[in-house]
Write a protein that binds this DNA or RNA. Structure first.
Lengths: 261, 261
DNA sequence: ACAAAAGTGTTATCCTTACACCCATGT
DNA sequence: ACATGGGTGTAAGGATAACACTTTTGT
């Protein structure tokens, strides 16, 4: 498939399809990535407005919700087999009814009243977390948005609905997951330094860790392989590179980890 | 409020109200209790049939889903301020479409075609766990069921839809929760023996624990107060009774526990 | 007195934590 | 050479797990 037709396929969920969806029900994806010691989340900017939101979508009448979430993720990032877990369902009646939303809906109304009507109904949304390697993705806006970008988690723009809450809940959930899942394998490139991994954990846990003890603890899991050193640019001693041993990683997943930082 | 009008209020969610609900969306409650060293779950038996199911309900068009869940719980048990947490949303397209369901729907059709139609639509359901003290409840069937009973978790009857899966997921979720929440306070009577508490943990964790170490670990949390001994019936040495110190329990919740068995 | 349940104590082992020390490298 | 980042080592304290000992009580 060439890039053009691939992108076309990624954009199938368009406005004329509203009737094919279950009304009142949606999925929202908190797509997390990590680069140069910073966590990012993928956001969409609405057309002709200043509001941002999470990439989300609706559920076809005979589609599993898990599938709807992975479809949304594929459409926005191009990723086919992502790490994707449901974490919470947001069902407050007024979750999309705040001042910003009404301003936003007003601004859409002139262009497309039918979109406004669809978006104005009450939605119960199920949140999914995706852990993703930024460099494997090509973000693509959807029919209602003009930009699709990686935004640092600590510089979130003004967002619609209860999306800030959804992100907050997602990060709480990730903080628990990190205790029994080696999330690094999903967020880091094929090879990385121990410092990279530690910084990732520190970003998620929002606290500093002891360098020496972190190294010991991670290595004891024996899911990492040490490669040769790097020498690129950086002054001072060059660190080892590591990569995940996928076989041992799978074994570990089955047997279960108890892991605290 | 006398008992009669109270029960009447508990039964407000009846068939004529279908139009007031969000279609395609439901809540199901896995209501857990504990008595004489056994875990129980509250189940409903459908009218004129052999199938059982979890107590569930639908969501009014302007109602928070959390509220729908606590409403269901109140209607079935009479409990007003329960411990109730959402744990997962089940959204497979075919989750209610198995052989038993079709047999069941066929059997309902003669009596009430409109109920059959409502029940035949695709539902996405959000599961809630409630931890409850059996003796504080008065189970009451709903409009569609003839019995509402506490059933031992290891003697589950034939159940409709994906409800066995929902229960399984609920217990997994409880198994994780027990590591950072002292669930005993919700499931045990006001005073209890250390053995009671240990047996409760063993039921949830499905493994045996060392008596001595369990006692030490629990007492170190210092949320228990020791009362006088009991002497009732039992041969051999009479154990102490304990009760939860709610103040310290609340403090512990805030500061967070790390707790493994 | 005995058996069994309940309370308490002991010990080896492991894990956690907080450091100290050494090594490698670019300036 | 030296400052810095990175790798390794260590020792104190705490937690865990397995088990032994003591106390209480009804029969």
């Amino acid at each position: 498939m060439n890039r053009k037709s691939f992108d076309a396929e990624r954009n199938t969920q368009n406005l004329s399809e509203f009737k094919k969806f279950i009304p009142g029900q949606s999925v929202d994806c908190v797509i997390i990535s990590y680069e140069s010691h910073q966590l990012y989340v993928l956001l969409l900017k609405w057309k002709g407005d200043t509001f941002w939101s999470l990439p989300g979508g609706f559920i076809y009448k005979e589609e599993d919700i898990d599938n709807a979430a992975s479809r949304v993720l594929k459409q926005r990032t191009g990723l086919e087999f992502p790490y994707l877990t449901q974490f919470y369902t947001f069902g407050k009646n007024n979750r999309t009814k705040n001042f910003d939303t009404s301003v936003f809906l007003e601004s859409v109304k002139q262009d497309s009243p039918e979109v406004t009507e669809w978006l104005s109904q009450r939605f119960i949304t199920t949140g999914y977390i995706a852990l993703v390697n930024k460099s494997n993705t090509r973000p693509l806006p959807d029919a209602l948005s003009e930009r699709c970008e990686w935004v640092p988690l600590d510089e979130l723009p003004k967002m619609l609905f209860d999306h800030p809450l959804i992100i907050e809940k997602a990060m709480e959930s990730l903080l628990i997951q990190i205790n029994y899942l080696p999330v690094g394998i999903k967020l880091l490139p094929a090879s990385f330094t121990m410092k990279d991994l530690q910084k990732l954990y520190e970003s998620i846990l929002k606290k500093e860790l002891d360098r020496s003890n972190f190294q010991r603890k991670i290595l004891k899991l024996s899911i990492l392989e040490r490669l040769e050193k790097i020498k690129n640019g950086g002054a001072h001693k060059a660190p080892y590179l590591y990569r995940f041993n996928k076989l041992k990683y799978e074994e570990l997943l089955k047997s279960g980890i108890g892991f605290t930082y």
